[in-house]
């Protein structure tokens, strides 16, 4: 088996006395969809933030494709192929879908002087951007202003943005959050269609989506890894059932999460 795309080695982080990440070690293999699940407050989002660079762990390291990136900034990590899709929809609202993707592509360009080259009339940029939009089924919405898109379309746009950057690893922070039932089905299908082409680390409350997509799961409880394994093993684990799944199922049927 080839080397992992992402390795977390003994990550530790605390806010004052509150330990939000306790000795977390996880690896994501190439092409794999690795889901991170756990009850609310288990430290999933803080963990993702440490991977993407918004937060600094107090100890331990984050290794992307063999390179230690623990000390790098968000932007430097992004340029190395780490793309985060945010929990809260995060696009440039006043830009068209196409311009949003173009912006992402020029983020991957190297050098200093490129900045003074035209962006708006560059057809090769626009072609690459269209390509990414087509992959998520947004080709016909290319000219729409992002704020006019539906919520699900905006999530798809975010995916296009990250895909356009040829990411090594997609960090998906609750892509289904706030998306309607119908749209979440479409989004799951979309993510499934990308499976194998790009590695993903997925945080998601929607258990249907998680079990439909994930190759392996890691269960996080109280900031520590409780268990890692394939879906069947996780489903069967009494520990997980007790600590987590019950609550989630309740939440899913009860409505508000």
């Amino acid at each position: 088996m080839s080397d992992p795309v992402l390795e977390l080695e003994h990550l530790q982080m605390h806010f004052g006395a509150l330990h939000v990440t306790r000795d977390v070690s996880i690896e994501v293999r190439p092409g794999e969809v690795h889901a991170l699940i756990g009850p609310n407050g288990a430290g999933k989002t803080t963990l993702i933030s440490q991977i993407s660079g918004q937060l600094q762990p107090h100890s331990g390291s984050v290794i992307l494709a063999g390179e230690n990136i623990t000390q790098l900034s968000v932007a430097e990590r992004a340029r190395r192929g780490l793309s985060r899709v945010f929990q809260i929809s995060n696009v440039i609202q006043s830009y068209s879908a196409l311009a949003n993707v173009v912006l992402a592509i020029i983020g991957t360009e190297d050098g200093v002087w490129w900045r003074w080259r035209p962006a708006l009339s560059d057809t090769s940029l626009a072609d690459r951007a269209m390509n990414a939009l087509a992959q998520v089924g947004l080709a016909d919405k290319a000219q729409s202003i992002a704020s006019d898109l539906s919520y699900g379309e905006r999530r798809a746009l975010e995916l296009a943005i990250t895909l356009a950057q040829n990411p090594r690893l997609l960090l998906l922070d609750e892509p289904m959050a706030g998306v309607g039932r119908e749209e979440s089905g479409a989004l799951t299908k979309l993510l499934a269609s990308l499976k194998g082409r790009v590695s993903m680390l997925l945080i998601e409350h929607d258990m249907n989506a998680v079990f439909a997509l994930a190759d392996r799961l890691t269960v996080l409880i109280g900031g520590a890894v409780a268990l890692t394994g394939p879906p069947a093993e996780i489903k069967a684990s009494p520990l997980v059932r007790q600590a987590y799944l019950g609550e989630e199922i309740q939440a899913a049927t009860g409505g508000a999460a």
């Binding site: 932007a75 995060n90 440039i92 609202q93 983020g107 900045r115 708006l120």
Partner: peptide, 26 residues
Amino acid sequence: AHTRFGLVLKAMTENERRVAANGFEV
């Protein structure tokens, strides 16, 4: 405003986090 610089700069006033996540040092 037509250059890459202009596109990034304008995006930044609206959403710094997105722009940083795209790989730009704000």
